[in-house]
Design a protein around this nucleic acid. Structure first.
Lengths: 328, 328
DNA sequence: TTGTACGCGTTATCAA
DNA sequence: TTGATAACGCGTACAA
């Protein structure tokens, strides 16, 4: 492997000249620069990342933190996020280092920081009382979250879940669908809190309040969803608003097996669209977010932070409300 | 940040002593070692990865190469692979660096190697005339492939796709399902070639040969699958053997919309199970592979290679044939 | 058993 | 504009 010294020697210049030619930093004669660049182009020279890292205290790596999810419906979100981040990182000469961790254990992140293996981090899921955020704040490492955070001073990028959910609920209400049941998952996840907030806010704007019996929370598995659906059917809810497509998928399964027709006997909407919903004969009203854009934006903002640029603390991305037959 | 020198100074020993205490290499007094270790435990010292990397020419990073897939059905395989690799890597103090690339462009990999950012690589999909393999071979970097490779001397880990597919086909044949149509995807992917081979081999063992009209290849999109299904129904095939669950998913969709009952009017089987198949009212006969084990094994073997250990060139992992109602 | 000193490949500071 | 040289933090051969 060729070093910068080899190049310098063969060109009859000093290492610093070569370094300057490559980096563009520091004054250097136009002619010499071109000579060096040409030599490198033709003979190939690739800097040793470790040496650069050591000299500049900069790794050109970022970490993306993914939660441990194993359902077919949850995977695509994080997978797509990762794609987008990778794409943006690659375009800026960064590599991404993937860490998978339950929401509880911050040690893998801590190790990464203390060993100085990355310049920054992206959290792809945020929790109430998040254990990662305080750690990253304390270590003063640049980081962004995809999803809202309660702490002050955390740079966060998110789809406007609250706004989207409010709009969706409002639309339903104005279609005279008055008794909208809310089927929520884990309330520890910030995304779920945001969506619920939007649901409540819509009711408020209509001067109403949802019946408490129609609100089901912490539906974290199929059994719980099953029970909730059964209850809500009995209570003759007008519509089932599902907090995410995992829940929606299961709800549609159950309704189908119970021979309850959508939308005739029950209307259904989801706060998150994924292609799993395309598996049903009927199209589902849902919220659609541009996850690629979310990932790209998060990555770009992180890179800006690493470069010491000023970045907005909060970036809210747009959404679409997709109305389909399921809420006719 | 504390360096090894700081630790040495505060303990009144030399840097090499500290280094030895940590690494366990070289002779060192038991007492001194414990003193150093205790100090580090209490006061915290974390080696600078770049400095280690530079001194030892070892990064403790491996790269995992993922293809650009965007269908809901294809994602889980690679996502699960990545999980497994990450888990095994983490357990061995390695970090994983994720690269996403179409099968055509080897430059991202080349850059990684030339910059010496990783100690080894895992290819998660192999192609006929793979462009990555020759590059990695030439660069002499340790790597393994998940999936078969044609080149000699490549360490590969794979589910026994050929064997599995052969067994499945045999079982069907012995159930008097004689005219098994084969619906295949891109033949550039090695996994697909293996499965097809198994299908043919099963027929051969029965002293038969499949009708050429029942073999459909390169069904890479829904339109092509649609046409193939239509044809095969006309030809009154007994069974549709789908090369993967993307195809199977679409086939089931089409059959349902055409009101063709499974298994009464048509039998269906898939060469790969993923949970997407759970979406149908009927359970599908399929092959099941342990993808977590695949990922873990691949990672472990790569780490062994990096350590200079002897590893088997070919590792074939087991499978299950899951018989369900769809082929009754 | 322990310490000294050099090398790993780059960047950056300071002279020239 | 260029070149020598000192960091960067760690491992290790060699000397003590």
């Amino acid at each position: 492997m060729k070093t910068i010294q080899d190049v310098a020697k063969e060109l009859g210049v000093s290492t610093s000249t070569v370094s300057r030619a490559i980096s563009g930093k520091g004054r250097i004669g136009k002619e010499t620069r071109e000579r060096v660049l040409k030599y490198i182009e033709e003979n190939g020279y690739y800097p040793n990342a470790a040496a650069q890292s050591l000299a500049q205290s900069k790794t050109n790596n970022i970490a993306i933190i993914l939660p441990e999810v194993d359902t077919l419906v949850e995977m695509p979100f994080f997978h797509t996020c990762m794609y987008a981040v990778e794409e943006m990182a690659q375009a800026n000469d960064y590599d991404i280092l993937v860490v998978i961790t339950s929401g509880k254990d911050p040690r893998p992140l801590e190790r990464l920081i203390l060993n100085r293996k990355v310049d920054g981090m992206i959290l792809t899921r945020t929790y109430e009382n998040d254990c990662f955020v305080p750690l990253l704040l304390e270590k003063k490492i640049p980081f962004v979250t995809i999803g809202q955070t309660e702490k002050e001073g955390v740079v966060q990028i998110d789809s406007d879940n609250a706004g989207a959910c409010m709009e969706l609920t409002s639309v339903l209400l104005s279609k005279r669908i008055g008794r909208i049941a809310y089927l929520g998952g884990s309330m520890e996840q910030m995304v779920n809190k945001c969506r619920y907030k939007g649901y409540l806010e819509a009711y408020r704007q209509f001067g109403k309040e949802p019946e408490s019996g129609l609100i089901c929370m912490n539906l974290v598995n199929k059994v719980l969803i099953g029970k909730a659906v059964e209850e809500l059917v009995k209570k003759k809810a007008d519509c089932m608003l599902c907090q995410d497509d995992f829940i929606c998928d299961e709800v549609l399964h159950i309704l189908a097996s119970e021979n309850i027709k959508v939308p005739e006997d029950m209307r259904v909407a989801s706060c998150h669209y994924s292609r799993i919903l395309d598996n049903y004969p009927i199209m589902i009203t849902s919220l659609k977010f541009d996850i690629m854009q979310l990932g790209r934006t998060a990555c770009k903002i992180l890179l800006d932070m690493i470069d010491g640029k000023e970045v907005p603390e909060k970036t809210l991305l747009d959404y679409e409300v997709i109305l389909k037959e399921s809420t006719k």
